[in-house]
């Protein structure tokens, strides 16, 4: 599929720009940012529940922006963008997850408990 000699504006990656989809992702992202913020400010739920709400909002925004903004789908022009992104997800999960796990056990075993509950260290 040669595009060198053709009009570059006919390239599928130019032609896939879609105003309606861009605006839809924008509106959904704003709603999904404002909603958890409202719930966090209200303090009506337990912090653990709110953490799950925040994680769910981030995951939903990832899917919405990934699909409508970055067009991560399985079409012929976009399949490799999607494939590389999906292969990238385990790298992020391992980087953050293993670090968090390692330090969580390290903290519980090495930090002096009396210091951790000292009055100066209120969270």
């Amino acid at each position: 599929m040669s595009t060198e000699c053709q009009d570059p504006l006919q390239h599928p990656q130019v032609q896939m720009a879609h105003g309606g989809q861009y605006i839809a992702a924008y509106v959904f992202s704003l709603i999904l940012s404002a909603l958890p913020l409202f719930l966090v400010q209200e303090h009506g739920y337990s912090d653990t529940h709110l953490l799950f709400v925040v994680i769910a909002a981030a995951a939903a925004m990832t899917i919405i922006q990934g699909y409508f903004w970055l067009r991560l789908d399985v079409s012929r022009t976009q399949a490799w963008f999607t494939a590389s992104f999906i292969l990238f997800i385990p790298l992020v999960v391992l980087t953050i997850g293993l670090t968090a796990w390692m330090f969580a056990t390290l903290y519980t075993r090495t930090m002096i408990p009396t210091l951790m509950h000292a009055p100066g260290f209120t969270h």
Binding site: Q41, A58, Q65, H123
Partner: peptide, 21 residues
Amino acid sequence: FFQGFIWIYVFCFVDLTGALH
């Protein structure tokens, strides 16, 4: 678009969870 991606993570996991205990 990718900066938007990263910002929603900063917003969710730095700003929003900062208000949680």
